[in-house]
Protein backbone atom coordinates (compact mmCIF):
# COMPACT_ATOMS: atom_id res chain seq x y z
CA UNK A 1 0.00 0.00 0.00
CA UNK A 2 2.89 2.35 0.71
CA UNK A 3 4.22 1.86 -2.80
CA UNK A 4 0.80 2.63 -4.20
CA UNK A 5 0.51 5.81 -2.17
CA UNK A 6 3.98 6.84 -3.29
CA UNK A 7 3.12 6.32 -6.94
CA UNK A 8 -0.14 8.22 -6.58
CA UNK A 9 1.74 11.09 -4.94
CA UNK A 10 4.28 11.09 -7.77
CA UNK A 11 1.43 11.13 -10.28
CA UNK A 12 -0.06 14.14 -8.54
CA UNK A 13 3.30 15.92 -8.71
CA UNK A 14 3.40 15.16 -12.43
CA UNK A 15 -0.09 16.65 -12.84
CA UNK A 16 1.07 19.76 -11.04
CA UNK A 17 3.55 20.30 -13.86
CA UNK A 18 0.62 20.49 -16.26
CA UNK A 19 -0.98 23.24 -14.21
CA UNK A 20 2.42 24.91 -13.90
CA UNK A 21 2.37 25.34 -17.66
CA UNK A 22 -0.70 27.54 -17.26
CA UNK A 23 1.00 29.47 -14.46
CA UNK A 24 4.10 30.14 -16.56
CA UNK A 25 2.60 30.82 -19.99
CA UNK A 26 -0.95 31.90 -19.18
CA UNK A 27 -1.92 34.81 -21.37
CA UNK A 28 -3.61 36.77 -18.62
CA UNK A 29 -2.93 37.21 -14.93
CA UNK A 30 -6.18 35.51 -14.05
CA UNK A 31 -5.15 32.42 -16.01
CA UNK A 32 -2.11 32.18 -13.80
CA UNK A 33 -4.38 32.48 -10.81
CA UNK A 34 -6.46 29.56 -12.05
CA UNK A 35 -3.30 27.49 -12.38
CA UNK A 36 -2.20 28.36 -8.86
CA UNK A 37 -5.61 27.40 -7.53
CA UNK A 38 -5.42 24.03 -9.27
CA UNK A 39 -1.96 23.38 -7.86
CA UNK A 40 -3.17 24.28 -4.39
CA UNK A 41 -6.06 21.86 -4.50
CA UNK A 42 -3.71 19.06 -5.53
CA UNK A 43 -1.36 19.97 -2.71
CA UNK A 44 -4.05 19.31 -0.11
CA UNK A 45 -4.37 15.69 -1.23
CA UNK A 46 -0.60 15.39 -1.58
CA UNK A 47 -0.12 16.48 2.04
CA UNK A 48 -2.53 13.79 3.23
CA UNK A 49 -0.64 11.16 1.22
CA UNK A 50 2.67 12.35 2.66
CA UNK A 51 1.11 11.99 6.08
CA UNK A 52 0.45 8.31 5.39
CA UNK A 53 3.97 7.81 4.07
CA UNK A 54 5.48 9.29 7.25
CA UNK A 55 2.81 7.60 9.40
CA UNK A 56 2.02 10.89 11.08
CA UNK A 57 -1.42 11.41 9.55
CA UNK A 58 -2.77 13.09 12.68
CA UNK A 59 -0.27 15.90 12.25
CA UNK A 60 -0.54 16.23 8.48
CA UNK A 61 -4.33 16.52 8.57
CA UNK A 62 -3.97 19.81 10.40
CA UNK A 63 -1.47 21.03 7.84
CA UNK A 64 -3.73 20.00 4.97
CA UNK A 65 -6.74 21.74 6.52
CA UNK A 66 -4.73 24.90 7.08
CA UNK A 67 -3.46 24.71 3.52
CA UNK A 68 -6.99 24.44 2.16
CA UNK A 69 -7.96 27.55 4.12
CA UNK A 70 -4.85 29.37 2.97
CA UNK A 71 -5.43 28.48 -0.67
CA UNK A 72 -8.97 29.80 -0.50
CA UNK A 73 -7.95 33.06 1.15
CA UNK A 74 -5.06 33.55 -1.26
CA UNK A 75 -7.27 33.14 -4.32
CA UNK A 76 -9.88 35.50 -2.89
CA UNK A 77 -7.30 38.14 -2.05
CA UNK A 78 -5.53 37.92 -5.40
CA UNK A 79 -8.73 38.10 -7.41
CA UNK A 80 -9.91 41.08 -5.38
CA UNK A 81 -6.55 42.71 -6.03
CA UNK A 82 -6.96 42.40 -9.81
CA UNK A 83 -10.53 43.57 -9.67
CA UNK A 84 -10.39 46.73 -11.69
CA UNK A 85 -7.24 46.34 -13.74
CA UNK A 86 -7.98 47.01 -17.35
CA UNK A 87 -6.18 45.20 -20.13
CA UNK A 88 -4.77 42.05 -18.60
CA UNK A 89 -2.73 41.32 -21.76
CA UNK A 90 -5.85 40.77 -23.69
CA UNK A 91 -4.26 40.87 -27.14
CA UNK A 92 -2.88 37.35 -26.79
CA UNK A 93 -6.45 36.32 -26.20
CA UNK A 94 -7.53 36.70 -29.80
CA UNK A 95 -6.68 33.59 -31.68
Amino acid sequence: MTTFFLSVALGLCFLMLFSLYRVLFGPTVLDRLVGVNAIGSKTVVLLLLIGFLYERIDMFVDIALAYAFLNFVAVLAASRYFHKRKGLYEESFLE
Binding site: T28, L33, S79, K84, K86, G87, L88, F93
Partner: peptide
Amino acid sequence: SIVDAGMRAGLR
Protein backbone atom coordinates in the same frame (compact mmCIF):
# COMPACT_ATOMS: atom_id res chain seq x y z
CA SER B 1 -14.48 35.47 -7.36
CA ILE B 2 -12.12 34.80 -10.27
CA VAL B 3 -14.97 35.10 -12.79
CA ASP B 4 -16.03 38.36 -11.22
CA ALA B 5 -12.50 39.73 -11.47
CA GLY B 6 -12.37 38.74 -15.13
CA MET B 7 -15.73 40.35 -15.82
CA ARG B 8 -14.74 43.61 -14.21
CA ALA B 9 -11.42 43.63 -16.03
CA GLY B 10 -13.46 43.34 -19.21
CA LEU B 11 -12.07 40.13 -20.62
CA ARG B 12 -14.05 38.97 -23.62
